[in-house]
Design a binder for these strands. Structure first.
Length: 764
DNA sequence: GCAAGGTC
C-alpha cells in the first residue's frame, strides 16, 4: 500500500485532521519530537487505498541568519550586512522535527502539505518540501487547501489537492531577509555607537526593527501631539428646560460650538431677544445596540486590555494556556466569521450549568444561537470561542480571560439589545437645539455582556409645535483639549490599521519596546515614551527617512502582495529594497550627528560614562525646552526641535471682529484712528458696559464692545431666568448702546441698512 | 547581543 506523508503546521492540527479524516480511528505513535506526534490511518485517495501518515512542525522550523564570519559585531562593518550571504537552516529546537520528517518521508511516495493557508503557512510548507525533496526521487508533492479544520473542509481539500504556491512562499523569504538585514545593520550600528558615546551598558541592546520602531513611533507621535497641543477656546449655547411637572430636559446646540466669541454672542443675543422655544420635531424610533461580532485575536487583546487591564502579551500567554487545556479554540486568528460547519448548539450547551451565565446560555439555546459575524477570515482558524467547560481549577487570570471569552461568545450568538429612541428638536430664534432620550425594551445580549453599557435617559413629553420658555439659556466657554496618550488598545488598533505585525505578534512588539526601555506604561495604563525612545525617534525623524513611521513597512507589504499575486518578481523586489535601505543606512551614518544631538538633549553630552542624570523637566515654553549646552557642539540650534511650535490656525472672522489694539488696549476704528471709549448710560442689560466708537467721524460705523477687544475678558455670558421672567428679558433693546447714534444700526454688526434678523454676519 | 514570523 502507498504511504502518504501529511504535514500540518502544529501537532494540534495534525491530530484533529487525522481524527476527522479517519473518523476517529487513527492510531498514534511517537516521533523524535515529544510535541509532534505521528497519527496513522487508512484512507481512499486518488481512488486507491493508501496509508495516511500525519505529523507536524511547530511553525517555522528554519531561520534565516548570517554566516559565522559576520556574527561578530565588533569585526563587521554593519553596512556589509546588506550584502553578506544569508542562509536558511533548521533551528536547533526543530532538529527533532526534522529528524521525524526525514525518517518518515523516505517511506512515502507522496507528501501533502497541510500548513495554515496564509502566507507564513505557505512558506513553512516549503521548508518541509525543501527538507523532503532531496531525500526521495519522484516524490509527489501537493498542497491541501482548507479554510477550517472540519470533516467537510478536510475531505474537500483532499479531493481538490493543488500545487503549493511558490510565489507566496517567496514573498515571505523576501520579508525574512529584509527584516534580518535591516534589523541587524541598524541595531548593531546604533547600539555600538550609543553605548560608546552615551555610556549605555554593554548588555543593553538598542534595537531597530521594521515593526518595533513604527510601534514606538505611534507612541512618540501622540506624545508630541500632546506636548505641542495648543488649546483653542470655543463657545457654545446650552439650553435647559424644567417642565411644570418638574421633569428636566437638556438640549444641545445643533451647531455644537463656535470657535469665535463674537458670532456666538450675536446668536446668543438674538436668542435672548426672543427666547421662546418651539418644538419643531418629535421623533421616536426603534434603536438596536448590536451584539459583538465573533472574537478574533486583535479584538480579544483590545478587550482584555480595556476591561481586564491585562496586557496583550499577558493575554496571549493566558489564552495559550487555556487553549492547551482544551478550554478555548486556537487563540491566534484573524477570523471573525463562524464557519457554517461549526455546530454552535453544543458549545452553548457546555455553558448552560454555570451559575453566572448558565441561565443566559439556556435562553440562547431556546432561541437558537445566531452568531453576529464580522468580515474577516484567515481561512485557517475559527473565531475564538470556548470549546469546553473547565472541570478543574483555573488561576485568577485564566478565569478572567475564560469568562471574557465565554461572555463574548454567548453575546455574539444571542440577540441585539432593543430600545426606543426619542429625539426632540426645538428652535429658538431660528437656532436649532436637540435632545434625545432612550428607553431599553429588551437587554438581550447586554444581560451577559457586562462589558457594554447602554444608558437609559428619559425625556419629558413634548408635543409638536408646543412652545415654552427654557429655564436656562447659557453661553458657555470651553476649550479644546489635547489628545490622550495611547492605551494599549489604541496602539494595537493603530498597528492593525497600518499593517504593523500580525495578530500573533503585535503584543510581542509592544512588549519589546518596553523591554528595550523605549517606552513605558504609566500609572493610567497609557504609553509614554522614555528618553531613549524620544531621542531615537527624534534623531531619525530629523534625518528625514521616516524610519519611525509605518509607511515603509506598509510599502513593503504592498510589494509582498504583488509578489504573491505574480505582479512582481521576488528577486527584483528584494534587490530594490536592499538597495534602498543600504542607501538609507549610509545616509544615516553620514548624518548621525543628528541622532547624537537628540540623544544629548536627554542624556547629556557624549563622552561621559555612566550617563549623567536626566535634564530637568522641560519648561512649558516648548515641547522639549532648551537643549543643554554641549561642550562639543557650539551650535545649539542643531539640538532644537526642528518643527517650531505651529502658530494657532488663523481665524479670519475673528480678526475682523476682534480688532488689534494699541498698547493701552484701545482698538483702531474703521478710519484707522484710535477709537473712543464710551459707556452705555441708558437703562437696560448693558447699562454701564463700555464700548468703542469712532472718535472723529460720524460716517465711520466702527463699533466694538470693550470686553470683546480685551482678551482677558473674552469669556461667555450666562443668564438664567424662569418662564415668568422671560418677558422682561426678551425685550432687550437693540439700541441699548446707541445713545447718541442715528440712524439706527443693526444690533449685531452696527452697520445700517438691515437689522439683527437679516444681518449678513450671521451667514457663518 | 540583531529582525519578524511561526509555534510548545
Amino acid at each position: 500500500m502507498h504511504r502518504v506523508l501529511n504535514v500540518a503546521e502544529k501537532n494540534d492540527a495534525a491530530k484533529s485532521l487525522a481524527r476527522l479524516l479517519s473518523k476517529n480511528s487513527a492510531s498514534m505513535r511517537e516521533g523524535f519530537s515529544r510535541f509532534n506526534k505521528i497519527y496513522e490511518f487508512n484512507y481512499q485517495l486518488f481512488n486507491q487505498p493508501v496509508q495516511m501518515i500525519f505529523t507536524s512542525v511547530s511553525g517555522h522550523i528554519m531561520n534565516c541568519d548570517f554566516m559565522a564570519a559576520h556574527k561578530n559585531w565588533a569585526q563587521t562593518d554593519p553596512v556589509i550586512l546588506f550584502d553578506a550571504t544569508v542562509q536558511k537552516k533548521v533551528t536547533d529546537r526543530a532538529l527533532d522535527i526534522e529528524k521525524t520528517i526525514k525518517r518518515e518521508v523516505v517511506k512515502c511516495r507522496t507528501l501533502i502539505i497541510w500548513t495554515d493557508c496564509d502566507r507564513e503557512g505557505e512558506n513553512i510548507g516549503y521548508e518541509v518540501i525543501n527538507l523532503c525533496r532531496p531525500l526521495k526521487a519522484n516524490l509527489k508533492i501537493y498542497r491541501a487547501r482548507f479554510s477550517e479544520i472540519t470533516f467537510n473542509s478536510a475531505t474537500r481539500a483532499l479531493a481538490n489537492l493543488v500545487q503549493p504556491d511558490e510565489r507566496v512562499s517567496a514573498a515571505v523569504d523576501v520579508r525574512q531577509e529584509l527584516d534580518l538585514r535591516i534589523g541587524a545593520a541598524f541595531t548593531r550600528f546604533q547600539t555600538l555607537r550609543l553605548q560608546r558615546l552615551f555610556g549605555f551598558d554593554s548588555k543593553q541592546v538598542i534595537s531597530y526593527g521594521s515593526c518595533q520602531f513604527p510601534t514606538l513611533g505611534f507612541i512618540v507621535e501622540r506624545y508630541l501631539q500632546r506636548e505641542n497641543f495648543i488649546s483653542e477656546p470655543f463657545w457654545k449655547i446650552a439650553v435647559e428646560h424644567q417642565t411644570e411637572a418638574g421633569e428636566f430636559c437638556e438640549f444641545t446646540w445643533e451647531r455644537n460650538r463656535l470657535f469665535e466669541h463674537q458670532p456666538c454672542l450675536m446668536i446668543y443675543d438674538m436668542i435672548m431677544d426672543e427666547p421662546l422655544a418651539k418644538v419643531m420635531d418629535v421623533k421616536s424610533k426603534n434603536k438596536s445596540k448590536w451584539r459583538p461580532v465573533a472574537l478574533d485575536t486583535v479584538e480579544m487583546e483590545k478587550l482584555a486590555s480595556r476591561k481586564l487591564r491585562m496586557t496583550g502579551k499577558k493575554t496571549m500567554e493566558i489564552a495559550e494556556k487555556l487553549y492547551m487545556k482544551g478550554l478555548i479554540s486556537y487563540p491566534r486568528t484573524e477570523t471573525n466569521i463562524f464557519p457554517t460547519e461549526i455546530n454552535l448548539q453544543p458549545l452553548v450547551q457546555n455553558q448552560a450549568n454555570d451559575q453566572r451565565w448558565g441561565a443566559f446560555a439556556q435562553r440562547v439555546l431556546n432561541d437558537g444561537p445566531q452568531p453576529r459575524n464580522g468580515k474577516n477570515t484567515d481561512k485557517a482558524h475559527p473565531p475564538i470561542h470556548p470549546t469546553r467547560y473547565p472541570d478543574g481549577q483555573l488561576t485568577d487570570d485564566e478565569n478572567k480571560l475564560y469568562e471574557l471569552i465565554v461572555r463574548h461568545f454567548l453575546a455574539c450568538v444571542s440577540k441585539d439589545a432593543q430600545g426606543d429612541e426619542t429625539t426632540i428638536k426645538i428652535s429658538i430664534a431660528n437656532e436649532n437645539f436637540n435632545a434625545s432620550g432612550l428607553i431599553i425594551r429588551e437587554k438581550n445580549y447586554l444581560d451577559v455582556y457586562v462589558y457594554d453599557k447602554w444608558s437609559e435617559k428619559e425625556l419629558p413629553h413634548y408635543e409638536l409645535n408646543q412652545t415654552f420658555y427654557p429655564t436656562k439659556i447659557e453661553m458657555a466657554q470651553g476649550e479644546t483639549t489635547a489628545p490622550q496618550l495611547l492605551t494599549e488598545s489604541d496602539l494595537i488598533a493603530l498597528m492593525e490599521k497600518h499593517g504593523i505585525g500580525t495578530d500573533a505578534t503585535h503584543a510581542e512588539h509592544i512588549a519589546k519596546i518596553q523591554d528595550r526601555l523605549y517606552t513605558k506604561m504609566n500609572s493610567e495604563r497609557r504609553f509614554e515614551p522614555e528618553k531613549l525612545g524620544l531621542g531615537l525617534c527624534e534623531g531619525y525623524d530629523k534625518m528625514g527617512h521616516a524610519l519611525s513611521k509605518p509607511h515603509l513597512r506598509a510599502e513593503l507589504e504592498n510589494q509582498l502582495k504583488a509578489i504573491c499575486e505574480g505582479r512582481a518578481n521576488p528577486a527584483d523586489v528584494l534587490r530594490e529594497q536592499i538597495d534602498k535601505y543600504r542607501q538609507v543606512f549610509i545616509a544615516t551614518s553620514v548624518q548621525i550627528q543628528k541622532l547624537d544631538d537628540s540623544m544629548t538633549k536627554y542624556f547629556g553630552p557624549p563622552g561621559q560614562n555612566p550617563p549623567p542624570p536626566p535634564p530637568p523637566r522641560p519648561p512649558p515654553s516648548g515641547p522639549f525646552g532648551d537643549p543643554p549646552q554641549t561642550s562639543r557642539n557650539n551650535n545649539n540650534q542643531s539640538a532644537r526641535p526642528q518643527q517650531p511650535r505651529p502658530p494657532p490656525p488663523a481665524r479670519p472672522l475673528q480678526q475682523e471682529q476682534i480688532r488689534p489694539t494699541n498698547s493701552t488696549g484701545v482698538p483702531k476704528c474703521n478710519c484707522d484712528a484710535d477709537a473712543k471709549e464710551l459707556t452705555v448710560k441708558k437703562d437696560g442689560p448693558n447699562k454701564g458696559r463700555s464700548f468703542f466708537r469712532c472718535g472723529n467721524n460720524d460716517n465711520c460705523n466702527f463699533f466694538a464692545w470693550k470686553d470683546d477687544v480685551t482678551p482677558s475678558n473674552a469669556g461667555g455670558g450666562q443668564r438664567q431666568f424662569g418662564d415668568n421672567q422671560a418677558n422682561s428679558l426678551r425685550k432687550r433693546q437693540q439700541s441699548d448702546n446707541d445713545d447718541d447714534v442715528k440712524p439706527r444700526k443693526c444690533g449685531l454688526c452696527k452697520q445700517t441698512g438691515h437689522t439683527r434678523r437679516n444681518c449678513p454676519s450671521l451667514n457663518l
